[in-house]
Design a protein around this nucleic acid. Structure first.
Lengths: 214, 214
DNA sequence: ACCTGAACACCGTTCAAGT
DNA sequence: ACCTGAACACCGTTCAAGT
């Protein structure tokens, strides 16, 4: 006969803690992630977490790395850069909290993963030395910046209707605060733009700029 | 004879609150900014702040906008984009907390200021419609991403010696975790690179890419 | 070694009471 | 209208005590 235990059937592990963290972040957002929520979800005591993870920051970094694991691309270097960038973009659509997390620490595992993927593609593109590190820095910073901005938007307007209303209100606000025609046109374009397409357009501007480096 | 009051000689105002916030952020960093620290600094009661500012988020946004006020550039459009970008970079050197704050909300006043400045320069460069908004989005996202990454570094290694030690440790860590020669070269370049020069190199890559848009 | 849960030292925000 | 400061409803982290 199988011995019945409480709700928790497995021993605690770093992996189970990180999985629970991702579930909570997806369901309740960054503000909903508390150590109390994690321990309740795992039916364990408060301090148990600290046997497997140093603190909340490490927990967030591990969760972000878990979500971004498995992004790659092996074909044409330009295509694999586009694929990597879009993979990050789509991961943020599914897990908006990742966008803010990536900007929090330049040397967390998830960011190192992005650096490595982009660096390898730039190498295959024939860039070396300072040219490669300048290009890599530019692209990584662009991707992280866009990720953070897109995530803030996704957080404040989760569905399509909310997004529509949000951008309308924002465009009206811009047009009101600034009556020069340039600001008005920018506000109008903001309402119509497609975040994902614009993100990719930025990657292509960068790739075009790279061609002028050698 | 002048009437002596307590330490506080002026009435409270939004401006005085924002100035105190900037002083506290500069002295104690983001973690040091608490409503209790602000009220202590102003010798007032806890709730007084809420008569002038909605909440802590608005206080942070107002502080960031205060630091970035007055950035402009009127000459050659490419030069004024470079000047604006460097102005932001240098402001973050003086106030590292600004870097993280700019990524927190895409529609805070400080970010709108950056959009407006870059948009006007791109207009003078002859870009219109979707081309301008794609180019603007690319540049703004790059600048904000680089700002956040640079600020994290500046926070973790305030002076030159600390920065040196920090990058050495990091390069060793990268080289250890990844033994392919590409990672080793990247780690070595990391130790030598100049953040400010690399930031400007990124701006130039995007400007070169933008030239291919029309 | 791993886990528990109470305790500690904080937070941001609200609100009745004062001026 | 503006300000005060106690009170509320939380936090992350630690640590003696258990298994």
């Amino acid at each position: 006969m199988i011995r019945m235990t409480s709700r928790r059937s497995d021993a605690l592990s770093r992996e189970r803690i990180v999985d629970a963290t991702i579930e909570i972040l997806d369901a309740a957002g960054e503000d909903g992630l508390t150590l109390r929520a994690v321990t309740a979800h795992l039916a364990t005591g408060r301090g148990a977490i600290y046997h497997h993870v140093a603190n909340k920051d490490e927990l967030l970094a591990a969760a972000a790395d878990g979500v971004l694991a498995g992004l790659a691309g092996d074909g044409d270097p330009r295509e694999s850069i586009r694929a990597l960038a879009l993979g990050i973009f789509d991961a943020i659509d599914r897990h908006p909290w990742v966008g803010a997390q990536l900007s929090r620490d330049p040397f967390q595992p998830a960011v190192r993963r992005i650096w490595t993927g982009i660096g390898a593609s730039l190498h295959r593109l024939g860039l070396t030395g300072k040219a490669r590190s300048d290009a890599g820095s530019a692209l990584v910073n662009y991707v992280l910046g866009a990720a953070a901005q897109h995530a803030s938007g996704a957080r404040q307007a989760p569905d399509d209707a909310a997004r529509r209303a949000y951008l309308d209100a924002l465009a009206a606000d811009w047009a009101e605060q600034d009556d020069d025609p340039l600001a008005r046109e920018s506000a109008a374009l903001l309402r119509e733009h497609d975040d994902r397409a614009q993100f990719l357009a930025g990657v292509d501007i960068f790739l075009a700029g790279i061609s002028s480096l050698n």
